[in-house]
Structures are given as structure tokens and as C-alpha cells.
């Protein structure tokens, strides 16, 4: 969740400054930190911007700017300058490059990576791995995958997973657009959602669309559907087929 933390100033390449940037914490696979840290790393070429989704960051700052109602003009200007710089850098990196990866890419085979093994040094290992894989193909197990464990399929009578999937797809098709995400929105829990769904369920079966409140979004649909599945697993909700739809009611254990 982005939240204001502090203000920092960073120098733009070629002179100039971003001014005071109000920092929001930002987290994704390729980066975790504040806008100013991201800006500094991008400026020094120490982060792969292609792996950093900038749209949510921009949205969070735009909201922050709107909410500040002009009280921090310099900070807002700094943030916008930093975001513009990041967008320009990312756009540049997204341009087609000559070193596009293929199965047999052209590369500098003399590359060495510090004290570790370089790619040419790893070639015998790559061949050995290929041979190991071929050997392994000569064996068969009860389960072809080394899974951590498995779940027994749940028997819900005549309703098949495909029926549930179709019902869920119909529900999603009727969902309203998502409203802007509130930075102060409380975390949702499945347990709370299950209580809400259980309260809405009646003894007579109803379709998913009739079960959800009017104006539900796709996120609501996902939460309601997950909660329903969990309630069915616990025996507190029941699913029955009605023509080509699936109807839901309270279960015997509710």
C-alpha cells in the first residue's frame, strides 16, 4: 500500500532537480522502495525499469497530488518530474533492441562474471544437465511431478468444476468497473467475506448474480466466489444445477 513517508530531493541528469519528492513506498518484483530511490537507481542504470510497472505508481502519485489540493506545489512538481523521467527511460528501454533473445543468441562468449563461472565454463554442465534429463525420462513415477502434496477432489454432487467456472464467468461479465483504489482501504479477509456471504445465503437456491449486492465489481465477484467455494467445502453452502446455471443456498451445516 503506498503511503507518504518523507520528502527527498534528487538531481536530474544534465542539471536541474526534481525538487522535494513526497515519497510513497512502492513494491513490485523488480523493486521495493520509494520513488526517489527508484529515480536514483534508474538514473544510475542500476534497476531494470522494464520490470517495474509505472502505471500504479503514477496513479498513486496523481491521487496524492489531487488529495493535497495544491498545498505542496514543489513536492508535486518534483514527483511529476521524477515520474516523467522514469516514463521516458522506460519507453527508451522498451524500444526494439538488436540483442533480442533467441534460442541461439549471438553473444560475447568472453564474458566473465567476477569470481563466478562464465557461460563458456558452464557449457559442460549444461550438456551434463541435458544428459541427466534424458536419463530421467527413462523412469516413471506414480506422479510425474514432485508435488508438495495433493488435495482430494471435493464431491459436490452433479455440479462439475466446469459448471462453477461458467457461473463465475457470467458473474464477471456483469461486474461494474472498479472504482479508484483508496490508499486507506482496509485489508479484506476471506473469513470476513465468508461471514458476509453466509448472511446473504438463504435456504432457497439463488444464482450468483442475485446473491451479490447491486453494482458489484470484478474484485467483489472474486471475493464472493472464493468465499462461496470455501463455504461449500465446509458444508455451509450448497450448489445445485438449474438448467445451465448453478444456484447456491445455505448448506446443512450452516
Amino acid at each position: 500500500m503506498p503511503r507518504p513517508e518523507k520528502s527527498t530531493e534528487a538531481a536530474l541528469p544534465g542539471g536541474g532537480s526534481t525538487g522535494q519528492i513526497p515519497d510513497l513506498l512502492f513494491e513490485c518484483d523488480a523493486f521495493s522502495g520509494s520513488l526517489s530511490t527508484l529515480f536514483l537507481l534508474a538514473r544510475d542504470g542500476r534497476v531494470d525499469l522494464l520490470g517495474v510497472p509505472l502505471a500504479p505508481l503514477c496513479e498513486a502519485y496523481f491521487r496524492h497530488i489531487l488529495e493535497s489540493e495544491g498545498k505542496d506545489i514543489e513536492g508535486c512538481a518534483g514527483a511529476l518530474a521524477a515520474l516523467a523521467y522514469l516514463l521516458e527511460r522506460k519507453s527508451f528501454h522498451a524500444l526494439p533492441r538488436t540483442e533480442v533473445e533467441e534460442d541461439e543468441p549471438d553473444r560475447d562468449t568472453d564474458l566473465d562474471f567476477g569470481p563466478g563461472l562464465s557461460l563458456p565454463e558452464l557449457q559442460p554442465a549444461i550438456e551434463a544437465l541435458r544428459e541427466l534429463r534424458q536419463e530421467a525420462e527413462g523412469r516413471f513415477f506414480r506422479s510425474p511431478e514432485a508435488q508438495e502434496g495433493y488435495l482430494l477432489p471435493l464431491d459436490i454432487g452433479e455440479v462439475q468444476p466446469a459448471d462453477l467456472a461458467r457461473a463465475f464467468a457470467r458473474l464477471l461479465a456483469k461486474a461494474s468497473p472498479e472504482p479508484p483504489e483508496l490508499t486507506s482501504a482496509p485489508r479484506r479477509s476471506l473469513a470476513e467475506q465468508m461471514r458476509e456471504v453466509l448472511a446473504a445465503l438463504r435456504s432457497e437456491p439463488v444464482s450468483l448474480v442475485d446473491l451479490l449486492p447491486v453494482g458489484f465489481t470484478k474484485t467483489d465477484a472474486v471475493w464472493w466466489f472464493l468465499a462461496l467455494l470455501e463455504l461449500i467445502r465446509l458444508g455451509q453452502a450448497r450448489a445445485v444445477l438449474a438448467e445451465d446455471d448453478v444456484l447456491f443456498s445455505r448448506g446443512g451445516d450452516a
Binding site: D48, G51, E99, V100, L111, G116, L119, L122, A125, L129
Partner: peptide, 28 residues
């Protein structure tokens, strides 16, 4: 071949970051 190379780099150099894999292989 590309996947085998990445797999070998990860297996022999783990834990390793995406940027380091790219540096060893010389390509994205």
C-alpha cells in the same frame, strides 16, 4: 538452449538475481 543456459546459471550460481543472469549470458 536458452532455458537450459538460464537453468544452469541459476543452479550453479544461486541465489542469483535476474540482472546477474543477464550479465552472465550477455542477453536479456
Amino acid at each position: 538452449q536458452a532455458m537450459l543456459e538460464v537453468l544452469a546459471v541459476v543452479a550453479y550460481r544461486q541465489p542469483i538475481t535476474s540482472a546477474e543472469i543477464q550479465e552472465v549470458r550477455g542477453v536479456d
